[in-house]
Amino acid sequence: MLIAQITDMHLGFDPDNPAEFNRKRLDKVLQALNDLDRVPDLLLATGDLVEYGDVDSYRRLKRAFAACRFPVHLAMGNHDVRASFATVFPDTPVMAGGFVQYAFDHGPLRFVVLDTLEEGRHGGSFCEARAAWLRETLAAAPDRPTVIVLHHPPIETGIAWMTTDPQEPWVIRLETALAGQGQVIGMVCGHIHRAIVTGWKGRPLAVCPSTAPQVALTLAPLDPQVPDGRPMIVADAPGFALHYWNGDGLVTHFETADEHVALARFDAAMQPLVELLIGERPA
């Protein structure tokens, strides 16, 4: 099973521009996914779908997704606005209180989409109502391999201005809700605009690069009172993730929607090497 993930589209950053930079980057990623030699089974879009939470940007996002050859499942990020989102995507499930949290099955896996948005706040949020819903939802399918999908990664990333304090109440609440849930095989997130892989509380956690411009990799300490000229946002290629379920676990690949120059192809010259490599495996 192949699961595609995109994140942080920030559509509408350049309002009223039909040739918007972020839309071009999004279209490039969606085209790359459509053109893969193995079409993904589904696509997870993990928040910051638009920049300003306006209805028009969500409409343009919906038009962009219409080109996809696979179902798309959406999550909320800190730039999103639930009311505007619901106007354009009314079929996306919500729980009591209007939080965009839902679970769905696809193939052998279950996906639990969380809402870590607190409107007006950049960082994550996860209240007790959302945590109770998560506990109940996981309890309903204790034996089905489950992927947790959310926008904010609950980890210290090392990027001083784009990170989470592991002692934030929402992180502790999420950790408590997931405690003892052995069916959770991994977590996929966005928000940081970089490809990151780590473990969190005994589970693999992957952060997808953004379709919008990336965050610069700067791991030096930062004094918020002393601007030091460090790069913060860079125009690196739009990226995406592919999570491959091999029957035992998730294997995450990161890719860019850039041109890739092939230096070798599977032709007669490469066939002996391919046969050798595959022949070394147990029969």
Rank of each mutant, 00 (worst) to 15 (best):
W200G: 03
F65G: 05
P231A: 08
A257R: 05
Y58N: 06
L2G: 03
R121C: 14
T164G: 03
D223N: 14
L174G: 01
E119M: 11
D56Y: 10
E119G: 09
D115R: 13
V94N: 11
L174S: 00
L217N: 09
A220W: 09
P221F: 06
D54T: 13
D228V: 12
T137P: 02
P142A: 03
L277E: 13
A45M: 11
Q167C: 06
F89Y: 07
T146M: 07
D223F: 10
D56I: 10
L117S: 07
C68V: 05
Q181E: 09
N17P: 00
I159R: 11
A131F: 00
T176A: 05
L33Y: 10
A262W: 08
M232C: 05
T146W: 04
V188H: 03
I172H: 00
L178H: 00
T211V: 13
R265E: 15
I159F: 15
P227Y: 14
G158I: 12
L134E: 04
I196H: 12
C127F: 05
Q271M: 11
G229K: 06
G123H: 14
G249E: 14
L49S: 05
G98V: 12
E20Y: 03
R60P: 02
D35K: 08
H10M: 04
V50N: 10
A141S: 15
F85P: 05
Q271H: 13
G202A: 04
L277F: 08
R130S: 13
L42E: 12
E20S: 15
V94T: 15
V261R: 12
P15D: 06
Q183D: 01
M232W: 13
P142C: 11
L61T: 06
D91V: 01
E175G: 00
A264P: 02
K201H: 15
V274C: 10
L33I: 07
L44T: 07
A257I: 06
D16G: 02
V207R: 03
R69M: 02
F99V: 09
S57F: 05
L117Y: 06
I192V: 15
A141N: 13
I185L: 09
F240C: 12
A257C: 05
D41S: 10
P227R: 08
V55K: 13
H122R: 13
R59T: 01
V226G: 01
G279A: 06
R144M: 03
V81F: 12
E255N: 09
M95L: 13
E275C: 08
G247I: 05
L49K: 08
C208S: 14
D248C: 07
P108I: 10
N34I: 04
E20Q: 09
V39K: 08
G97N: 11
T157G: 12
N246K: 08
D54R: 14
L36Y: 04
L150H: 13
F240L: 12
D37A: 10
M1S: 14
K28S: 14
K24Y: 02
L26F: 03
P204N: 11
T116S: 15
G77N: 02
V100I: 15
H106I: 02
G202H: 00
V50D: 10
R265T: 14
A220R: 15
E51F: 14
P40H: 07
